[in-house]
Amino acid sequence: MQAIFSRPKSMSTTISHYCPGCTHGIIHRLIGEVLDEYNLKEKTVGVAPVGCAVLAYNYLDVDFIEAAHGRAPAVATGAKRGRPDLFVFTYQGDGDLASIGMGEIVHAANRGEKISVVFVNNAIYGMTGGQMAPTTLPMQVTSTCPQGRDVQTAGFPIQVAEMLSSLRTDAFIARVSSHSPKNIIEAKKILKRAFGYQVSGRCFSLVEFLSTCPTNWGLPPKKATEWLEQNMIPYYPLRIFKTPEEGKIL
């Protein structure tokens, strides 16, 4: 009998701690599939963030380094420069990458580190229980902006893919979503292309995944999916922002 569907070899059998309806699990699986397809399991080092995905190393069965909050791109820089033969990726949330780790991601991208970044944007802090993130939408209610995000005092949500695309250094930068089967299939293609740029030693790559957080958004999973589609995608358009072949295509 031919197996047509199985667990990626790059994933462990550990049951995840993610909430029902959260898309971290889907994104993990896409990473596992792409690592398998490039046959990278034995030469990969993942860098885990601080946030809900801090325990990503329990679910992806590859060598891992746990970084301090926001520092994953610096940690990955050290790993990749030390061992350029390894495949090094970071997995970071929006609080980790777009707030406390903004300096590290900008400079890793600007140096053109040959690393890959999986950036999960769910517009809220998940692990600490639903506080305002740099990506929280205008008027979105969180536990630290109970009246909704006031752009007069908190500014507008940071569009990370667009911002990093403004750098002159070659890179592959795209935004995808994980909220529907159609988007997930598209997301995998783009993730595979992003990882490919590191496999060929070409350039830095970053894929921003729009993701749901039903628990902290206070919505059932199905409603959360709809909320992402109706509120996040208009502000965070899904597209390829930059490729090394064409430079900046924003």
Binding site: A74, V75, G78, K80, L86, E104
Partner: peptide, 20 residues
């Protein structure tokens, strides 16, 4: 590598040392 800050430099040596 000239890091963007001492915060980054020390996290870079963390990543590099982690690979042995």
């Amino acid at each position: 590598v000239q890091a963007e800050s001492e915060v980054a430099a020390s996290n870079m040596i963390y990543g590099c040392a982690a690979t042995g």
